[in-house]
Each structure stands twice: as C-alpha cells, then as structure tokens.
C-alpha cells in the first residue's frame, strides 16, 4: 500500500475516537473521525478510505448494520471491528459479512496499528 493509509474511525465514544485519531495520525495515517454509525456512512459517501475501524456497539445503529452498509457502498473497503469482551459471536458474524478482522476493546494501540497496516496492504 503506497503512501499514507486513509482511515475512517467510527465509534460513538467521542473521547476515545479523538485520542485514538491523534495517536494514529501521529503514526502516519489520515484519520477521519465519525462519532456515530450515520456519521461514518456520511463520511464514506464523500471520499474513499483504505480501512475502516468500526465499533460494533453504538447507540444509534448496530455495528453489524453499519458494516453491511459500508460493504454495500464500497465492497473494497476493509473493515476492522472493535468488540466488547464476550461478543465473539458478533465478531464472527461480521467476518462472515466481509469484515477483515476484529480486536477486543480496549485494545493495545500497537496491536491495532499492526492490524490496520496488515489489512491495508492485503489485496482484496
């Protein structure tokens, strides 16, 4: 994957999105923040991303629903899911729907960065 990774970060926990975005940007990524599922969808309408990091548990929309819409809008978009502990079932469902991988929240930043880089470099 040449150049900077274009990343869409979707989570309804604003503070988490902000700090995560800061840290990821510092690691050479272009990060677009979305504080809800619908904001994420809106952002994806405006531009293309290489990878989306998507929280599965959000207030306005179920993460799985958002994932379905993402995949419909941009089948090439790679999606990494963030799940709570014990919702492995949802994560597996997501994988079946075309998500590239998942991490349990809270996760180590290094792990996340590594997974994003790996996912981004993978061919679909």
């Amino acid at each position: 994957m040449p150049g900077r990774i274009k990343l869409l970060l979707v989570d309804d926990e604003e503070a988490y999105v902000n700090v995560l975005a800061n840290r990821l940007m510092r690691r050479d990524m272009d990060v677009t923040k979305a504080y809800s599922g619908s904001e994420g969808i809106q952002a994806l309408r405006g531009q293309d991303f290489h990878v989306a990091v998507l929280d599965l548990k959000m207030e306005d929309m179920d993460g799985i629903e958002v994932l379905k819409i993402f995949k419909k809008m941009d089948p090439k978009l790679k999606v990494i899911m963030l799940t709570g502990h014990g919702s492995a079932q949802a994560a597996r469902e997501g994988i079946a729907l075309g998500a590239s991988g998942y991490l349990t929240k809270p996760c180590e930043l290094d792990e996340l960065v590594e997974l994003i880089r790996k996912t981004a470099s993978k061919e679909v």
């Binding site: 988490y16 700090v19 800061n22 809270p106 930043l109």
Partner: peptide, 14 residues
C-alpha cells in the same frame, strides 16, 4: 467501564 478505561489508557499513550 471498558470504554472509559480504554480512553484513559489511550490518553496516557497520547
């Protein structure tokens, strides 16, 4: 608790 903890850890990381 997971979310606040995650935020705190990330802020520290920041």
């Amino acid at each position: 608790i997971n979310n606040p903890v995650a935020i705190m850890v990330e802020e520290a990381g920041w």
